[in-house]
Design a binder for these strands. Structure first.
Length: 199
DNA sequence: CGTTGGATTGGCT
DNA sequence: GCCAATCCAACGC
């Protein structure tokens, strides 16, 4: 898992990037040097002209990062409690991204448990709100560049082969729910418990 | 300026 | 399995 994913990786359709993010390793280095790492096992694509996407109605103050260059982190707050993180994809101006939904914790589990208020490894990153919380991600990290920063980035890891990727409908969206744009590592115990609509 | 409901979670029935 | 929590962005008047 040597290098990190380059800008060109993100600068493609979210439908390509989402499945190819599986098996990659999200890393955060905290101010005190603690290293948090987790292997992505569940992602979801949000495309341009996608009625379920925050970007559907054009740029606003909240979603402006989605319309910026690829390879940056789009973080938003919802349901009064939860932060969620996305990797911006495509080309600047398009407004497309991949939601990071779940991961297998690899490093810094004690710190993650502290942020989460939960101990069991399967409870640390098994959902989009949980994943952000386990990594201490809030609006502060909105717009962070995953390609050049040294404290929040994505390593190449070990990509998951196509035969081990399952594709389902998305979770929690109403409009465009029928689109099968959620990708998971088949049978992985660290995926979210969310119920996809339809699949 | 007021209203509505959400890319969820966790606790309770 | 079901439902309340809890805040704020987006939209309508």
């Amino acid at each position: 898992m040597a290098g990190r994913l380059p800008r060109s990786f993100y600068a493609r359709s979210a439908l390509r990037v989402a499945p190819e993010l599986l098996g990659r390793v999200l890393v955060r280095r905290l101010a005190d040097g603690t290293r948090l790492a987790a292997r992505l096992v569940e992602t979801e694509a949000y495309l341009p002209d996608d009625p379920a996407s925050h970007a559907f109605r054009g740029p606003t103050r909240r979603n402006e990062v989605m319309f910026g260059p690829p390879g940056r982190l789009y973080v938003y707050f919802t349901y009064g409690n939860h932060w969620m993180m996305n990797a911006v994809t495509g080309r600047a101006g398009e407004g497309t991204a991949v939601l990071l939904r779940a991961a297998e914790p690899l490093q810094g589990l004690e710190v993650m448990a502290g942020y989460r208020g939960r101990d069991h490894p399967r409870d640390l990153c098994s959902g989009p709100g949980k994943l952000a919380k386990a990594f201490g991600i809030t609006g502060v990290q909105n717009g962070h560049d995953l390609v050049v920063g040294s404290d929040l980035y994505v390593l190449e890891g070990r990509p998951v082969t196509r035969s081990h990727v399952s594709r389902t409908t998305r979770v929690g969206v109403t409009l465009g729910a029928e689109r099968r744009w959620r990708f998971v590592v088949t049978g992985d115990p660290f995926v979210s418990r969310a119920r996809p609509s339809g699949a």
